[in-house]
């Protein structure tokens, strides 16, 4: 009978597909409109209007006070990329620093969170407690934590003290980890990774719960050890999750700047300036110069870069999976 049902067509209990558009009653339409209206209004004001306003601002110069904008066409984009001898070098330096962050943060996030998730998935005791501990950076993240990190990284901070007390005094940083131009950027990368590992670890853990245990058992029966199981079964199965984690980390690295703003403000000197921070500085720390348009233009370039990276990343991961 079941076969007959399939052959004959859809089950009588299923709604027949509609030919043409379904006609809704006017009252249904009104109700729908009423419930959707707040979201539409909110998006129109907070989303579409703001996006449109910001985009048009990228073609003008304005300092936030004058009654009129001065339209400059694509000049803001050209100034940032090559044309202006004062802004372009700053953007180039920030782009170089951002590139290092974009390479290091996704790689290190995956390198730390994947093994951590595998380990946490395999422990038998205190599983919930350990997961909570490793998730702490996510729930405590915020300005206060970055300030705490600043104190820890100072010349007389806990890290130098720890290094000295375990006999690794040669690794101490007399100027603090944020005061030395060669350690400041790597230190900020490590802190960014520290704050992004919890969510990545949770994503991997969710993925690990979904892995069919029979696959692992079959591999073990065939004599595969833990390393081989992880390398040849678990890792390939979790590639879609890796793609998401890499994508999130890339987006954060490209556009995020709060860690850099709070902890170094781009310093010492200009050694940790990144593109997100430069955008913020052009908007709010330019001493009333008319650079809001430049800031907006840089923001839009970051948006386009993020879109391109997302597309490339997804395509690459689709091919791999």
């Amino acid at each position: 009978m079941a076969v007959d049902t399939i052959v004959k067509g859809p089950s009588p209990t299923r709604r027949a597909p509609l030919r043409g558009r379904k006609r809704y009653r006017r009252s249904e339409v009104a109700w729908g409109a009423a419930f959707v209206a707040p979201a539409v209004v909110l998006f129109a004001v907070m989303g579409a209007y703001t996006v449109g306003y910001g985009f048009s601002l990228s073609f003008a110069t304005w300092n936030g006070f004058t009654p009129n904008w001065r339209w400059v066409g694509l000049q803001n984009y050209a100034d940032l990329l090559w044309n202006d001898p004062t802004y372009a070098p700053r953007v180039h330096t920030a782009a170089r620093n951002t590139m290092w962050v974009m390479i290091a943060v996704p790689v290190l996030t995956v390198a730390v969170s994947f093994p951590l998730a595998v380990l946490l998935n395999s422990v038998r005791r205190l599983k919930t407690f350990l997961r909570s501990v490793y998730f702490l950076p996510q729930v405590t993240s915020g300005i206060a934590v970055y300030f705490a990190w600043m104190y820890v990284l100072q010349p007389d901070g806990a890290i130098n003290l720890l290094l000295r007390s375990v006999g690794l005094g040669s690794l101490q940083q007399p100027q603090g980890f944020l005061g030395n131009p060669s350690t400041a950027l790597p230190t900020l990368i490590v802190i960014t990774v520290w704050s992004s590992v919890p969510v990545s670890m949770m994503l991997y853990l969710a993925g690990l719960q979904a892995v069919d245990p029979t696959l692992v058992e079959a591999a073990r029966v065939d004599g595969a050890g833990t390393w081989h199981v992880t390398r040849h079964i678990i890792w390939p199965l979790l590639r879609p999750i890796t793609a998401i984690i890499v994508l999130l980390a890339l987006r954060d690295s490209l556009q995020g700047f709060q860690t850099f703003l709070i902890m170094t403000n781009g310093g010492p000197g200009n050694h940790t300036n990144v593109l997100g921070l430069e955008t913020y500085k052009l908007a709010f720390l330019s001493q009333l110069d008319p650079t809001l348009g430049l800031s907006s233009a840089l923001g839009w370039m970051l948006f386009v870069a993020a879109l391109v990276l997302a597309a490339v990343n997804l395509r690459a991961m689709r091919r791999l999976t």
Binding site: Q154, D156, P174, Q175, G176, L178, G179, N265, G267, P268
Partner: peptide
């Protein structure tokens, strides 16, 4: 002072 380059 050590670390003064990091202070506001």
């Amino acid at each position: 002072t050590p670390g003064t380059q990091s202070l506001d």
